[in-house]
């Protein structure tokens, strides 16, 4: 077994750091401290931290913060950014209003009306 796969109970209380307030994800206002606290509690990957903190879940879907956050998490854990995983990009590539998605023309096309 790779010892790095093992996760155990955190040791002691989280000790705050001076630069905990620094924001990493501006859309969802996730700070370095939020991430450190999550790491302290045993979370390890980018996705786990995303689910816990909403990091990268805002309007830009992580366009700006993913790179910063991966680098920060990797630094905190002492590993390479590639080892903390990558959030999955999803459709729509840019936010789209519901009504636009709804009127995608497929039903009209099927009814022979085309678009």
């Amino acid at each position: 077994m790779a010892e790095s796969n093992r996760r155990k109970a955190p040791e002691g209380e989280y000790v705050p750091k001076a630069d905990d307030d620094l924001l990493i994800c501006r859309c969802e206002e996730v700070s370095q401290g939020d991430i450190r606290r999550a790491l302290h509690q045993g979370l390890r990957t980018m996705n786990e931290i995303k689910r816990e903190t909403r990091l990268g879940m805002g309007l830009c879907q992580g366009q700006t913060c993913t790179r910063i956050a991966r680098a920060f998490i990797a630094r905190e854990l002492g590993v390479a950014p590639g080892e903390v995983g990558l959030p999955t990009p999803r459709t729509p590539a840019r936010p789209v209003p519901m009504t636009v998605i709804a009127r995608d023309g497929i039903m009209d096309e099927a009814a022979g009306e085309g678009i």
Partner: peptide, 11 residues
């Protein structure tokens, strides 16, 4: 491909 132009979507 699903493309969006103004308020229209096309497949």
């Amino acid at each position: 491909l699903v493309v969006t132009k103004n308020d229209r979507v096309e497949h």
